[in-house]
Amino acid sequence: MHEVGIMESAMALVQRHADEQRATCVHRVVLKVGALSGVEPDSLRFAFEVVTRGTRAERAELVIDLVPALIFCGACRTEFPGDRGAIFTCPHCGDLCGEIRSGRELELSRIEMS
């Protein structure tokens, strides 16, 4: 499980921005997490609780924006959602060699504080 490490990176950024803004309280932290990022939202939530304990983000809400997997089929030149199991079969031609267009995201999108 590397969610704790990921969350530590996120909180380091949050603290830096909170310092810059001289904020005393962080209300909300918004993350963008791709379906193929290899990170579990539930583990992230748990890590968030642990990592924020005793900080000015202790009472902050964690919002996780899930980004679905989007696959691009080079043969058909179309995009399709990669959500049927983990098998990225193109619904048009049955091809499997599509490129992952989105779904690997792992970012800190937004911080709300005061």
């Binding site: 990921i6 990176s9 996120a10 950024l13 921005h17 803004q21 904020a23 209300h27 993350l31 792992l106 970012e107 800190l108 999108s109 937004r110 911080i111 709300e112 504080m113 005061s114």
Partner: peptide, 13 residues
């Protein structure tokens, strides 16, 4: 006192 929103969009990796 007013809440402040910062758009960060930074990769966690």
């Amino acid at each position: 006192h007013s809440p402040l929103t910062v758009e960060v969009h930074a990769s966690l990796l």
